[in-house]
Design a protein around this nucleic acid. Structure first.
Length: 590
RNA sequence: GCGCCCAUAGCUCAACCGGAUAGAGCAUCCGCCUUCUAAGCGGACGGUUGCAGGUUCGAGUCCUGCUGGGCGCGCCA
């Protein structure tokens, strides 16, 4: 019954449990007792709206039910008896004792107050989606940032998680590159000549070859046809197709690993579409034998339309009229491969929401084929990153902006702002660069993750890097200020003491710390990191208010000083965990 | 043509299962550095939630229609 023993749970949960006991005694359904953070901080810290729903159900007046519940409240260690407002809302204010205990529990918890899932699942997160020969551009930014964050969120909640880059190294694009090379060399007949060219092949070569070949294929039917045949040749293991593919694959892969590393994005699996290729012949034969595939216009298709669909979903193209595997085929085979090698309970595909139909086709096909259940497969779609004109982001010249260039732009802006603020004058060149990089990445990532993933947002580097308001740099600044205090406290020999919440800003900070678990759960349930981004900002704001009004080093009361130091430590720990879940790292100073 | 998504403060975005007076940041204005990093803090201003109906004790949220925008619709991925 006393708060301290339950302090491992967040306050909303503690209040809900206590209120559920009250509701049960009154003969009301406990589910109506749920308490959550208040929308009206002027009336209370927490609220329960259940009296209204309960009233509807049993035909009593909501105010009466609320009054009964308030009168029956007995968890006075946790909160005072709730006040009643409006049509029957219950408003709670927690006791300083319960709040102190909760803050202490967070301070003592390596997970900073975050709970874990009861039953861990095996989760595969498919994100990033880089391609051979195509430089990563701003379109890859969202997939990488959101996917990386979701991977970390699921892992932190206790699931067993694999992040897979699902490298786009198969299909028609490879055929295009092969015929482009053929034309460049005037034929592929001379193995020595081919080998020599492949040895000198650079990423820049590939990045020039691909768009040229893709453009040519658009209005040159003969070229397109050769590329399709080359694709078929590659997929049936011909030479020199295979050798050429391997060289192009390796050059691209090495470059991509560098780029992802700069972004702070890391994968457990670097599997490519090509890795699922060996499964395709047997898979197609199996689908055929079970009568799931039929011939249509020279191609082999798997029909996935269902009765009751508002619109007839086109069939999944399993084998093209040229005999090649299409990307749906590869995606299906990849599910088969992952079932065998990983056996995930849940698949998350972090891909642009415009591909929704494609994934619906693949997921239905997987279910029809019995490879996976439909509910295990989720397409986590996201919106586009737009330019100032509201259309998908383009450079001033109208082309796509390379990810590398984007990051360098952000870094340059960060350097300028650091110099402007006269920060880092005493840093080594190395540390200065490290800080500029961290600031740049934090700005880019937070600007992306603060919005719900489904909405498109306008890219505005000046705004992201403004260092003011709701930005990545603001969060880093908050973390760095705490680190600075902790360093000085350490030098001064100030030690942490039991947390005692007294001042309004301490109360606000403790409540912010308490909100972490709910934010994490929402981010997890909705597959939406912006709930955590929101929490990080709220926490940093609460700390800033505390920072301005509750000095630590100057505090003369040892108990209050130790308590505040412990609060600062807990805040830093939780802020760094939250930032890490967003894929953001804070420097030691800035 | 069919289907999906979106429309919230001047701008960029939030709003948990339908709950109270719709919240932040930016911009504008007013305060606060003799104090742990002012890249900060406090305050003010700012709204017919695209339009019209409907369901409900209660609608930004659910339903219908309309307007405006984005996107998708078999051999690219």
């Amino acid at each position: 019954m006393t708060a301290p023993t339950k302090a491992c749970q967040d306050l909303a949960r503690q209040l809900s449990d206590a209120n559920a006991a009250v509701f049960a005694r009154l003969g009301l359904e406990p589910k109506h007792a749920a308490v959550r953070r208040s929308d009206r901080p002027d009336l209370g810290e927490f609220q329960c709206n259940g009296a209204l729903a309960a009233a509807k159900q049993i035909g009593r007046k909501p105010q009466e039910i609320a009054a009964d519940a308030a009168a029956a409240w007995d968890a006075t260690d946790l909160a005072d008896a709730p006040t009643i407002a409006g049509p029957g809302f219950l408003n709670f204010v927690t006791t300083a004792r319960a709040l102190s205990a909760r803050a202490q529990a967070i301070a003592d918890d390596p997970r900073a107050g975050a709970s874990a899932v009861e039953t861990p699942r095996r989760v595969l997160v498919d994100y990033g989606g880089p391609n051979v020969a195509k430089p990563m551009h701003v379109g890859h930014l969202r997939a990488s940032i959101i996917g990386e964050s979701l991977k970390r969120i699921f892992r932190f909640r206790g699931d067993r998680v694999w992040g897979d880059a699902h490298f786009g190294d198969w299909g028609f694009q490879m055929g295009l590159l092969i015929v482009a090379l053929e034309d460049e060399l005037g034929g592929l007949g001379d193995p020595a000549k081919v080998a020599a060219r492949l040895k000198s092949l650079t990423l820049e070569d590939l990045e020039a070859m691909y768009p040229a070949a893709a453009a040519k294929a658009r209005d040159d039917a003969a070229f397109r046809d050769r590329a399709r045949k080359a694709t078929a040749g590659l997929q049936s293991g011909e030479e020199p197709h295979r050798t050429i593919w391997r060289a192009m694959h390796d050059v691209s892969m090495a470059a991509l690993k560098r780029e992802f590393s700069a972004l702070g994005v890391d994968f457990d699996l670097w599997n490519g579409e090509s890795d699922a290729d060996p499964l395709i012949p047997d898979m197609v034969a199996d689908l055929k034998a079970r009568g799931l595939i039929e011939e249509d216009q020279g191609a082999q298709v798997l029909r996935v339309a269902r009765e009751g669909d508002k619109r007839a979903l086109p069939p999944l193209l399993v084998v093209s009229s040229e005999g090649t595997a299409m990307y749906g085929t590869t995606d299906l085979a990849t599910i088969l491969q992952r079932e065998r090698e990983i056996d995930p309970d849940l698949y998350l595909y972090i891909v642009d929401q415009r591909q929704g139909d494609h994934f619906e086709q693949v997921f239905r096909a997987a279910e029809l084929a019995g490879y996976a259940k439909r509910e295990q497969l989720e397409h986590i779609g996201f919106g586009t990153m737009n330019g100032p004109d509201g259309k998908p982001f383009k450079t001033r010249a109208g082309g796509v902006l390379k990810l590398n260039d984007l990051i360098e732009m952000a870094r340059e802006k960060a350097r300028a702002r650091l110099r402007e603020a006269e920060i880092g004058a005493d840093f080594s060149a190395e540390e200065f660069e490290d800080v500029a990089h961290k600031v740049a990445i934090a700005a880019l990532k937070f600007a992306d993750l603060m919005n719900f993933r489904g909405t498109s947002y306008v890219f505005d580097l000046d705004r992201f890097m403004s260092f003011e308001g709701k930005t990545g740099p603001y969060l880093l600044y908050a973390a760095v200020r705490i680190k600075s205090i902790l360093r000085k406290a350490g030098e001064a020999g100030v030690a942490a003491a039991p947390i005692v919440i007294a001042a309004a800003e301490e109360r606000g900070l403790a409540l912010a710390l308490d909100g972490f678990d709910a934010a994490l759960a929402q981010a997890y349930d909705k597959r939406a990191p912006h709930f955590l981004a929101e929490h990080a900002f709220a926490l940093a704001q609460a700390f800033s208010a505390f920072y301005g009004n509750c000095p630590i080093l100057q505090e003369t009361d040892a108990g209050a000083q130790g308590s505040r130091l412990a609060l600062a430590q807990a805040t830093l720990k939780q802020l760094e965990i939250t930032l890490d879940l967003l894929g953001i790292a804070a420097p030691e100073r800035m």
